[in-house]
Design a protein around this nucleic acid. Structure first.
Length: 410
DNA sequence: CGTCCACAGGAATGACGGGCGG
DNA sequence: CCGCCCGTCATTCCTGTGGACG
């Protein structure tokens, strides 16, 4: 039994301490506010584009570009939810389905998702993609609706799956009799058209919208609006608000990031029992967010990705090559009794770690001495220790300790 | 100026566990 | 229960290549 006073203190503080938050849900980025400052014109534009469905006409396909946190998803959801309400009022048969392509992952699951929203049950595996598509088309045509498909983060899908799904969807109206489909594609990558078949691209972007990043003062307004709902009066300092806006503006005007900062800053302040959220809490929050991001990423790596990272760690040089990593990795594997992957495979693992920002990999040519990747650790060495084992344990780890394997199994 | 290193990274293929329809 | 198809991870085989060296 521990000392009950320790917890008493914590709970006491939580219940009776100063409450900074009124409702922290408001600061989550999936929260949809009923007002989207600085996006009025985009809302109007998108509204105009989809309005025809209220008169039972198919609306144009729409393509929306913009970096993360510029309000693309929020505006789309906002407009569509209002459209849905209006459609009910007018008795128009309109339905929409929102799919996040990055989360949903594969064509199969996307079609399964679309099918579900026209009331079809699709097993989450077992059928061919073509079969699911046919069922979706048949199911949709039976219902006689104007169906709006929102494909969020569609760039993620196209980059690793190609544009087959989009091609099918842009052509689906040719084989539908009673229903019609409109597409809204949302992309974070402004150069998406380079990856697309020109025919697909042209039919997909009958209308195009671009979301510019927010600047610092716009972010400030957004945060201000939200903070009125999420924080109790007087518990958020002007300075904190400004720093949040400035930090997020520096990072391509990402409102999502700004909201995260504000929320975490509030949590930090609350934990410290502060009366008011200050600038320092925001800075602390910034460090926390990054720290958590990396720790989460590290913990969720597969065994071999961890081993690759450890190999880089052990080499302990400012920059290493693929071959060097492979040698060390080879040694670690045999000492751990773990199966060995090929160098080809290791190369793609390194690339994955690069994308995650844990490593930095750059192809360089060393002329006579070949062509390889220069790889650097992108995170503090101390963090690797923190996650993979404490202090000198790592040294032993190469000797093959049990602790290491069990650490990986969870 | 060609060679040739030490890989990069694409394509095809296979093993595997999950899950269906019949 | 079988046969089929799914996505994922991994292997095998392969062609491509920037630039220092000779």
């Amino acid at each position: 039994m521990g000392n009950p006073n320790i917890l008493d203190d914590v709970f006491e503080n939580f219940v009776n301490g100063v409450k900074l938050f009124k409702d922290r849900e408001v600061l989550r980025h999936d929260y949809l506010p009923d007002k989207l400052p600085h996006r009025e014109s985009q809302i109007r534009l998108l509204g105009c584009a989809v309005a025809p469905v209220l008169k039972d006409a198919r609306c144009s396909n729409i393509f929306i570009y913009g970096k993360t946190g510029t309000g693309k998803t929020a505006v789309t959801k906002y407009v569509l939810s209002h459209l849905e309400a209006k459609a009910k009022e007018y008795g128009a048969s309109v339905r929409f389905c929102y799919v996040n392509c990055r989360m949903t992952g594969t064509e199969y699951r996307i079609f399964a998702n679309l099918s579900q929203s026209v009331g079809l049950m699709i097993p989450f595996t077992g059928l061919s993609v073509g079969e699911v598509f046919d069922r979706f088309r048949a199911g949709l045509d039976a219902t006689k609706t104007l169906f709006i498909v929102v494909l969020d983060e569609v760039d993620a899908l196209i980059k690793d799956r190609g544009d087959g799904l989009l091609y099918e969807l842009t052509r689906i109206n040719e084989t539908l009799h009673k229903s019609r489909v409109s597409l809204i594609g949302i992309s974070n990558d402004l150069r998406l058209k380079e990856f697309l078949d020109p025919r697909v691209f042209s039919s997909l972007s009958e209308e195009e919208m671009i979301f510019r990043p927010y600047d610092a003062s716009e972010l400030r307004n957004i945060l201000h609006e939200r903070s009125k709902l999420s924080f109790n009066e007087g518990s958020l300092s002007e300075a904190a608000l400004n720093v949040c806006s400035a930090l997020a503006a520096a990072e391509h005007g990402d409102a999502r990031r700004a909201l995260d900062l504000l929320r975490v800053a509030g949590e930090v302040a609350e934990r410290q029992g502060a009366q008011i959220v200050t600038e320092d809490h925001v800075k602390e929050a910034e460090r926390n967010i990054e720290h958590n991001r990396v720790v989460e990423a590290l913990k969720n790596l597969t065994l071999h990705s961890k081993l690759v990272l450890l190999s880089v760690y052990h080499l302990n040089k400012s920059s290493v090559t693929t071959g060097e990593i492979y040698d060390v990795y080879d040694k670690i594997c045999s000492e751990l009794g773990a199966g060995l992957l090929t160098q080809r495979r290791l190369g793609t693992l390194v690339n994955e770690l690069d994308v995650m920002g844990l490593l930095n990999a750059k192809v360089v040519s060393m002329g006579r001495y070949g062509r390889t990747k220069k790889i650097r650790l992108e995170i503090p060495r101390t963090l690797i220790k923190e996650v993979f084992g404490s202090d000198d344990r790592i040294g032993l780890l190469v000797g093959g300790t049990q602790t290491f394997l069990s650490r990986n199994s969870s």
